[in-house]
Nucleic acid binder design. Structure first.
Length: 594
RNA sequence: GGGGGUGUAGCUCAGUUGGUUAGAGCGAUCGCCUGUCACGCGAUAGGUCGAGGGUUCGAGUCCCUUCACUCCCGCCA
């Protein structure tokens, strides 16, 4: 009870009838019957119907008030007759007989309706985000986000993790994404960078002996947006543990995610013990390192088939001789699908920039035969061999693609999703988690053939460290892992390399000499030289977890104040120009491109 | 940086083969209405058809350029 309200708008029930109360909230909706006026009053908690009739001296004034104005209503809780009960709201058995009211915050004409299920252009939603956030769906998403974060904090505390903050102004790192830079006034010509992740700090925390750390950490990366990637900033559940191996990290994270997803969603978990898929297996079977395991389709390599003399599909044969591979996707029992289904997939593949998807369907007359545009290129024995190799049965169709490894992976991965979509094979009521493990330590850049770190340069290589074959760096695997859920990369992590000599060695393979490593990672290398514990961790993306649990396809639907695709905040007008004096103070001058 | 989609009233959208004065619903304003809960009924106001250029007797509609938003590719250790 305070001067504004005695109850909230979701509180009053039959038992409160007769009470004199006051409520404060927004006018969600008015229904004006001329001599009687219904006002739906809304606050964070719910809606209460209030009613006023012409004989009240305040009637005419209330009738004129704009929707979304904030008012305080004083009145009495009264019963509703049976036929006027509203079962859709918790307070639907009662209503408030208005005695007097007061406008606490008036509202201009609205640029977008608040009370409506309609969808609106994002531009206007982002500009008036404070109005958009009043709307039911997104209001609930943001509340869900808060609850999920609280829950995660509690769970982490229970598991013995300590929460620490790490600096927001730090140094630029040469690896990874583009940095956001902040000029230093006191150090002219020098810049801070916003952290892409608290990676080095959390390792320092381990070196400092704190054993288990976590943080709901803001991360800043100046990269272009996607529907599941906010431009600029996002949050990770950053965590790190000392004296652990990969499986210790897995155990903690699996427990946390299973608990969280069970608590906040009714969808089923396909696996409570997340399957572990090696990076190379994932690239072959799914064409990507973030496979959607709800999708039962798999990709198989059948390059050899096209080397047979009784297969005369010359286009593929020629490509394969020049180093291409052939892979296929088998769809179960699709012989009765119309020609348009197959041609549609083929056309779609061409639209994706590939040379299309060849296909045939295995049918049986006296014996098996391949029906479809390329069926005639395969002998009976070849068809039988394909069936044996791929597990295809009569009535199944097989889609083929041929190309260089990388492009082949890309198109088959997309095709796997596309075909499953077309066939309705994805169960939307399921979460399918998996671990992707055994990432290669290095990869070769396709453009300049240079050896680069494939993931995180601070990861620990696998195997007997004294016997690592540095002459074949591409064969070195790392204790590096990702969590994927429904095809979305939720997090990546690693057991870290805590041995400075090994670090120098690995960096030298990626083209960094000792001097450069000392320069760029001085803090880190220095720290590891003073007694560092073996340690490792991971950093699940909070926004994406909330997105999955809120059943949203766009990250902005679970972000309170997101920027648009061009990294602009339309509500706050950021980024914006600054005064000449501010630039001067920072020793900066602008050289804008025309 | 590249490709796709969208852009018409405050909001959501329709607008035929290029053809009269560009429409609807919601919202706004005014009026009527005592039981609605997407209340109902009547009227009024509200338009640089994203912008610029072109073709044409005539352009919301066709062509070119450009801008904004969005989705995707690149990028994201």
């Amino acid at each position: 009870m305070n001067r504004y309200r005695s109850h909230n708008c979701n509180q009053l029930r039959k038992g409160d009838i007769g009470k004199k109360i006051n409520l404060s909230g927004w006018i969600n909706k008015k229904r004006d019957h001329g001599n009687i006026l219904f006002v739906d009053l809304r606050d964070n908690y719910g809606i209460t119907q209030c009613i006023i009739s012409k004989d009240n001296k305040n009637f005419n004034e209330l009738e004129k008030i704009q929707l979304e104005s904030v008012v305080q209503i004083n009145g009495e809780v009264v019963d509703r007759s049976k036929d006027t009960i509203n079962k859709d709201i918790k307070t639907g058995e009662i209503e408030i007989k208005i005695e007097s009211f007061k406008v606490l915050g008036s509202c201009k004409e609205l640029p977008l309706p608040v009370f409506s299920d309609q969808e609106y252009a994002e531009e206007i939603r982002l500009k008036y985000r404070f109005l958009d956030l009043r709307r039911k769906k997104i209001h609930e998403n943001i509340i869900l986000r808060s609850k999920i974060i609280s829950f995660i904090r509690e769970e982490m505390n229970k598991l013995g993790f300590l929460e620490f903050q790490t600096p927001i102004l730090t140094s630029s790192s040469p690896e990874g994404a583009r940095d956001f830079l902040v000029p230093s006034r006191l150090n002219p010509g020098k810049f801070y960078a916003l952290p892409q992740a608290p990676q080095q700090f959390k390792q320092m925390i381990m070196v400092s002996g704190f054993d288990k750390y976590f943080q709901i950490a803001p991360c800043f990366r100046d990269e272009d947006a996607r529907s599941d990637r906010s431009p600029g900033e996002f949050y990770q559940l950053d965590l790190e543990m000392s004296f652990v191996e990969q499986d210790d990290v897995f155990e903690v994270v699996e427990k946390l995610l299973v608990n969280t997803f069970k608590k906040f969603s009714n969808k089923k978990l396909l696996f409570e013990k997340f399957p572990k898929i090696t990076f190379s297996e994932s690239m072959l079977r799914y064409g990507t390192d973030k496979p959607d395991l709800r999708n039962p389709l798999v990709i198989q390599d059948i390059t050899e088939i096209f080397l047979r003399d009784d297969v005369s599909f010359e286009i593929f044969k020629k490509l394969i001789k020049s180093g291409s591979k052939a892979r296929c996707i088998v769809t179960k029992d699709t012989k009765n699908k119309p020609r348009s289904f197959f041609d549609g997939i083929d056309k779609w593949a061409k639209d994706q920039g590939s040379s299309g998807l060849a296909y045939f369907t295995v049918e049986k007359d006296k014996d098996f035969f391949a029906k479809g545009p390329i069926g005639k290129f395969f002998s009976l024995n070849a068809i039988k061999e394909i069936m044996k190799k791929t597990g295809a049965k009569e009535g199944d169709s097989i889609f083929f693609s041929c190309g260089k490894k990388t492009e082949l992976e890309k198109i088959t991965s997309l095709a796997r999703n596309k075909i499953a979509d077309e066939l309705g094979l994805i169960d939307e009521n399921v979460f399918a988690f998996c671990w992707i493990v055994d990432y290669p330590m290095f990869e070769q850049d396709e453009n300049d053939n240079k050896i680069k770190f494939s993931h995180n340069p601070f990861s620990m290589p696998q195997g007997d460290l004294s016997k690592l074959n540095y002459d074949k760096p591409l064969e070195i695997l790392a204790y590096q892992y990702d969590i994927v859920c429904n095809g979305i990369e939720l997090s990546s992590g690693a057991i870290r390399n805590h041995i400075p000599e090994l670090m120098y060695k690995l960096f030298s393979i990626a083209g960094y000499d000792k001097k450069r490593v000392d320069e760029k990672f001085s803090g880190m290398i220095n720290a590891l030289s003073f007694g560092a514990p073996p340690h490792g961790g991971i950093a699940p993306g909070i926004d994406r977890i909330v997105m999955l649990l809120a059943n949203e396809k766009n990250i902005r639907e679970v972000t309170m104040f997101p920027m648009n695709q061009n990294a602009q905040d339309l509500m706050m007008n950021a980024p914006s120009e600054v005064k000449e004096e501010q630039l001067k103070e920072l020793s900066l001058s602008l050289k804008l491109k025309k």
